[in-house]
């Protein structure tokens, strides 16, 4: 049986761990509230942007010479995977699930003989993917979510992506991120952003809507609007993904830390019980020693 001193030391250390995890939980909870708010405020823009693009593309997609961001580069050889993770750990399966999904996709694509490049947003993603694909990671960006997600920073990243695409460094771009469902559940989401996926046939049955779409006046021309709209859409999609991922991160961390706090509490109960038992046993054996000593005299 462990001696009393060891037990005391363990109890203090578990106590301070519990203090830290419960503080982290509190911090995550307050950050979650802000992040969730930001994610919700960002939704209307992304939704309307999508609707606008959908209307535009459904009247345009037949036309030749559409911008490459829409029609693709014509090839399907090099895939870019943007893995959005957190910079920090201690948030349960948040980073792990993204890394697992990214790995699965990379291996899949490589098995099909495609070239794969990886862009990591968030340090943990690089740490996880670096082990298996050190040569495929083209860049890592950190600190994007440090002070809340800022649109300007994201649109720089998106601009960089467009440049790389135009330099024909890749043909298809997919982002992998955690979509925020609630504080305790996140969905790993895979979204293709380049080329922009044109809404599929299921929307076409609304024929009256379609005929109205075709009547849109464009000012200036369709091409010019698309040229501006597509890069902006990319930043918006990326921005939304980051907002969602940020909210998910804090949610995941909050529930992970909540669990840790509870586990520490359980452990503390066990340890205190053992400590008291041991203490009583020691007292009993001391008493027996004294009594039997007195009897011997």
């Amino acid at each position: 049986m462990a001696n009393l001193k060891d037990l005391r030391i363990r109890i203090t250390s578990v106590k301070s761990t519990r203090k830290i995890t419960s503080a982290m939980k509190m911090v995550a909870a307050s950050k979650l509230k802000r992040a969730q708010n930001a994610a919700e405020q960002g939704r209307p823009y992304a939704e309307r942007m999508e609707r606008m693009l959908g209307e535009l593309t459904s009247s345009l997609s037949t036309m030749d010479g559409a911008p490459k961001l829409l029609s693709g580069s014509g090839a399907d050889d090099t895939h870019l995977i943007v893995a959005i993770t957190a910079d920090r750990g201690l948030c349960g399966g948040f980073n792990g699930s993204i890394i697992r999904e990214a790995k699965r996709r990379v291996l899949d694509l490589q098995a099909q003989g495609k070239k794969v490049k990886i862009l990591c947003l968030g340090r943990k993603g690089r740490d996880g993917l670096n082990r298996d694909f050190p040569k495929d990671i083209i860049d890592t960006l950190e600190g994007l979510t440090k002070t809340g997600v800022e649109y300007e920073m994201v649109s720089d990243v998106a601009g960089n992506l467009v440049e790389r695409f135009e330099a024909e460094e890749f043909d298809v771009c997919t982002i992998i991120y955690n979509r925020f469902v609630s504080a305790i559940s996140q969905d790993v989401t895979i979204q293709q952003v380049i080329p922009f996926p044109v809404p599929e046939a299921d929307e076409k049955d609304d024929a009256s809507d379609k005929s109205q779409n075709a009547m849109y006046l464009m000012e200036p021309s369709e091409e010019e609007i698309l040229d501006e709209l597509l890069p902006r859409n990319l930043s918006v999609q990326l921005f939304r993904a980051l907002l969602e991922s940020n909210a998910s991160e804090h949610g995941a961390r909050m529930s992970a830390m909540d669990n840790a706090t509870r586990n520490a509490g359980d452990m503390l109960d066990d340890l205190t019980m053992t400590y008291n038992r041991t203490r009583q046993a020691v007292i009993t054996s001391e008493l027996i020693e004294i009594i039997s000593g007195a009897e011997a005299l």
């Binding site: 209307e55 535009l56 109205q212 009547m215 849109y216 006046l217 464009m218 000012e219 010019e224």
Partner: peptide, 19 residues
């Protein structure tokens, strides 16, 4: 303030997209 000049919108305007 449209990309090609200001435009006013009243109800019943023709569908339009502009910068």
């Amino acid at each position: 303030p449209g990309g090609e000049g200001d435009f006013g919108v009243l109800t019943g305007h023709a569908p339009m997209l502009s910068t």
